[in-house]
Amino acid sequence: MSELHRKLERSAVGFVVAIIFMASIGGLVEIAPLFTIDETVEDAPDMRVYTPLELAGRNIYIREGCYACHSQMIRTLQDEVERYGPYSLAVESQYDHPMLWGSKRTGPDLARLGGKYSDAWHVAHLINPRDVVPESVMPKYGWLQRNDLRIDDLGAHLSAMKAVGVPYSDEMIANATNDAFGQTLPDSDFAEGVSERYGEETNIREFDGDTSRVTEMDALVAYLQILGRLTDAAYQQAAGNQSSQDQQAQSQQAQSQPLGSTAK
């Protein structure tokens, strides 16, 4: 035993192997099963992919580091569910490359933000948060309204997403630029293709109120309005849990009772 270790250690290479071996086990054990598991990701047949405009908006969300202050992960705790809505399911972020669960809530969680406020509210809030919420400490993002969105390369973005496993069709990739255009210009000829490819429920609106061009504001608001709305799975699961947990919910005494631990 000792002799073996001494040899390992004397030749630095053996020592290196020992460190790699020791250190890699934990990661393998924890991560490897997540790739085979089907149960970690629930079924959501209604789940749709991000439209090119929403994806561009998501990239702006990433670029501006919004995730540094806003989580997109409602934990299975009673107060969180009451404050933000049904707890987040794994399936909801299955097309999120990368995920934006976040680690800090300087601002509130955004996992179920979509549809909560009007487009106009979002635009006003992003231009100057303190116009809408006087106590807010969020930075101003006025330039989003001034910047044109780069849409000519969205096809390449969709192909890259496809390469990492998101089911974009060739048609979606080919029409990416037009679809981004169409989603924010409901009266244009391109609008129809968007609902054809991404579903009738897709928001097709002039998000920033300006019909003359596609701005970064359009993209970001389109993304914020779809948060938590790509699938109904979480609401369905919540409805299922609700009936079985009604009694528990009645008593309401626990401040942070883990919900859903029974479901897991």
């Binding site: 035993m1 054990v29 924890e30 490897a32 099963p33 089907d38």
Partner: peptide
């Protein structure tokens, strides 16, 4: 399949930890 991987993770991880500790203490 998933069950096997989880089972390996849960059981062998522990044995591995014990073996490692003994090895290091011996050394």
């Amino acid at each position: 399949d998933h069950e096997t991987l989880v089972a390996i993770a849960k059981s062998w991880g522990l044995f591995y930890l014990i073996a490692m500790s003994i090895g290091v203490l011996l050394y």
